[in-house]
């Protein structure tokens, strides 16, 4: 008999349709980690809702969490649909999946405004530095000098997704690499508990169009140059928090909105992800040094989410009765009087 989690579900209960993405595509490994995270966190698939735009990365939600509702929307417009849907039912946990074309070319505006509103959801950008679904064009995150088949050599400066996120006052900004499943999973878990928009820029190689070792979005380059800021673990709320023996200054706990804790163990340097200035600086440094910096770059667990800002009723909008929605007949007279 297959193993089950605390709510009695097997891992298979979190799967989706068989993938049609290329074998080895980074997006597939992200999907496995989302599935693993949801399973391990004992989340009912019915409590989750999936969103995506258009692209290979945006197709990916089809291949996970079959039992969850999902909306595969328009190219670059996922955040709007997600915003509306998350307002419609505030009890759901949102998982959004997008690509670099989807979020920082056609969808740059919506991407930024999602963060500005701080709508509560996990927002993954599977960043492969190319347009996979339209067969390998240069993207806004392609590095200078990248040459792709049938395309010119890129001469334009790339857009750094995490820098954009910081500029938009995002409350959760992380970068990871699809070739580092453990870190991806830990970040997903933390992001799923964040009360706000949690941006995960995951370098997710496109094995078909952009995987030469020299390319910044390839497996080879990632393995060679990835540079984790810290060692991460996630302790869910209600789990006992283990007090570990550690040297002064080598560990930091970040308490999240729901009581979960992100535990950061120091690697080479001191880094405090609640320090905004430090985050901006480390992003600039790593891009100057051509390193793939990974980890939790910034977190502000306390900023109100959009639902808090709007002061929405506890009852989800979609569960309200007709009586709650339609003002009573006794009110109409006052309205007519108010018209003159």
């Amino acid at each position: 008999m297959a193993a089950t989690n605390k709510i009695g579900l097997e891992k298979g209960d979190y799967k989706g349709a068989p993938t049609t993405l290329c074998q080895g595509c980074g997006h597939n490994s992200i999907l496995s980690q989302i599935i693993a995270a949801c399973y391990e966190m004992n989340m009912a698939p019915e409590d989750i809702v999936k969103f995506s735009g258009i692209g290979c990365s945006s197709k990916a939600p089809t291949y996970m969490l079959d039992r969850s509702f999902g909306f595969n929307g328009l190219h670059g417009r996922m955040p709007a649909i997600a915003t509306g849907a998350m307002l419609g039912d505030t009890t759901l946990t949102g998982i959004a999946m997008s690509g670099d074309g989807d979020s920082v070319s056609i969808g740059m505006g919506q991407f930024k405004h999602a963060m500005r509103r701080n709508i509560s959801m996990l927002y993954i950008i599977a960043n492969n530095g190319t347009y996979g679904l339209t067969k390998g064009q240069l993207s806004a995150t392609s590095e200078v000098g990248l040459t792709l088949k049938k395309q010119a050599t890129n001469a334009l400066q790339p857009i750094d997704i995490c820098v954009e996120a910081m500029a938009s006052n995002a409350t959760f900004v992380a970068r990871s690499f699809a070739g580092d499943p453990k870190q991806v999973k830990t970040l997903i878990k933390a992001a799923l508990r964040h009360n706000g928009t949690a941006i995960l820029d995951i370098i997710s190689p496109c094995v078909t169009f952009n995987n030469a070792d020299s390319s910044y979005h390839s497996y080879g380059w990632g393995r060679e140059n990835k540079n984790p800021i810290h060692d991460l673990s996630f302790i869910p709320a209600r789990d006992e928090i283990m007090i570990e023996d550690y040297e002064e200054g080598t560990m930091q706990d970040v308490a999240m909105h729901d009581g979960s804790v992100i535990r950061l163990k120091k690697l080479e340097r001191d880094y405090d992800p609640t320090n905004r200035m430090a985050a901006v600086q480390i992003l600039e440094e790593s891009s100057a040094n051509k390193q793939l910096l990974t980890g939790l770059i910034y977190i502000d667990p306390n900023r109100p989410s959009f639902v808090n800002t709007l002061d929405l009723s506890e009852t989800p909008l979609n569960r309200m009765t007709d009586e709650e929605l339609r003002p009573g007949p006794e009110t109409i007279n006052d309205i007519n009087v108010a018209m003159f």
């Binding site: 328009l74 997600a82 509306g84 419609g88 039912d89």
Partner: peptide, 10 residues
């Protein structure tokens, strides 16, 4: 888009 999202979730 926001309108569609809202309607889709009821």
């Amino acid at each position: 888009g926001i309108t569609i999202g809202g309607a889709w979730s009821g």
